[in-house]
């Protein structure tokens, strides 16, 4: 059992942070790697990239958005409750090198995943411009942490309620126009990663994205997380989760994420009838 020692609701309760006791994973985990969590006996195995690890206290932190039954079930867990299973660290860590000027683009809960990578890149001697975006001000998460992890933080909201009005790609364009960006890391919703990659391709700037397709085991055994990268099939769980953003087939990924949409809806609707207070 993996006990929750800290729980925080963010973005008007649509996003939840859990700090979980998992000493073996905390000792090994590096930025960019993920874990698989299972709440209870009947639960689904859900992959989430870690937002923080604390090897000394033996904890890992995950941040998830309520998107369906399984994440709604996670939300019911309080401090002192436990996940039945946590498996990891899985996937390859981010390659942290001194490159120069790096732009870290985070959207939605992708900001939580972006944070440790941003910090590691900064500690690795890079100059970091961070761009974070959300639909509206109240849904923005981890602003303060991202500010500390970067040299410059640009905030975008779709409705203009905070920071710059518009998508992260618009802010990114201004940064790229300066012409001194060596690398972009983008983590967030698939459409965001797609359009960031499309833009950086025009500028010829290397781009890394972190993918989160549907998976079961996370160890390369099931092949459910197949993604097409550079025309070849890769398993996100062992070959990724990070890939060259210019070579990912995002349209295929978006379709594959819909594989179980009807089942997911049915499951979530049933859950909401039982526990309306945990609905998104």
């Amino acid at each position: 059992m993996f006990k929750i020692i800290k729980r925080e609701e963010m973005a008007e309760g649509t996003v939840v942070l859990n700090e979980v006791e998992a000493p073996k994973i905390a000792r090994k985990a590096k930025p960019g790697q993920f874990v698989i969590l299972k709440a209870n006996e009947e639960g689904e195995r859900i992959p989430l990239t870690m937002a923080e690890t604390d090897p000394e206290n033996g904890t890992i932190t995950i941040v998830y958005m309520i998107v369906g039954k399984s994440t709604a079930l996670f939300k019911t867990l309080q401090v002192g409750d436990s996940y039945q299973d946590v498996i990891g660290p899985l996937g390859k860590p981010t390659e942290i090198e001194k490159i120069g000027n790096v732009v870290c683009v985070g959207g939605g809960t992708g900001i939580a995943v972006m944070h440790p990578i941003t910090r590691a890149l900064k500690e690795g001697g890079n100059h970091i411009t961070a761009i974070v975006g959300s639909r509206t001000k109240d849904l923005l998460i981890l602003e303060e942490k991202m500010k500390q992890a970067s040299h410059e933080l640009l905030i975008c909201t779709d409705d203009g309620s905070y920071g710059r009005e518009g998508f992260v790609t618009e802010a990114l364009k201004d940064v790229l126009d300066k012409g001194d960006t060596q690398m972009v890391v983008a983590i967030g919703p698939v459409p965001m990663m797609k359009f960031v990659s499309k833009m950086t391709a025009e500028y010829g700037v290397k781009t890394i994205v972190s993918l989160n397709p549907i998976m079961v085991d996370g160890t390369g055994m099931c092949g459910g997380c197949r993604v097409t990268v550079n025309g070849q099939t890769k398993f996100a769980c062992v070959d990724g989760p990070e890939f060259d953003g210019h070579k990912v087939d995002y349209d295929e990924l978006m379709l594959r994420l819909q594989a179980y949409c009807e089942d997911e809806k049915r499951c979530y609707d049933d859950f909401c009838l039982l526990k309306p207070e945990y609905a998104r």
Binding site: E42, G43, E44, K69, G223, D263, E264, C267, D270
Partner: peptide, 22 residues
């Protein structure tokens, strides 16, 4: 087959929606 059988056997997905794995 690994994925299909793992869903069915390990995750007991044949009992969906009583279990959460489809």
């Amino acid at each position: 087959a690994n994925e299909y059988l793992t869903r069915a056997n390990l995750m007991k997905a044949y009992m969906f929606p009583e279990v959460d794995t489809p």
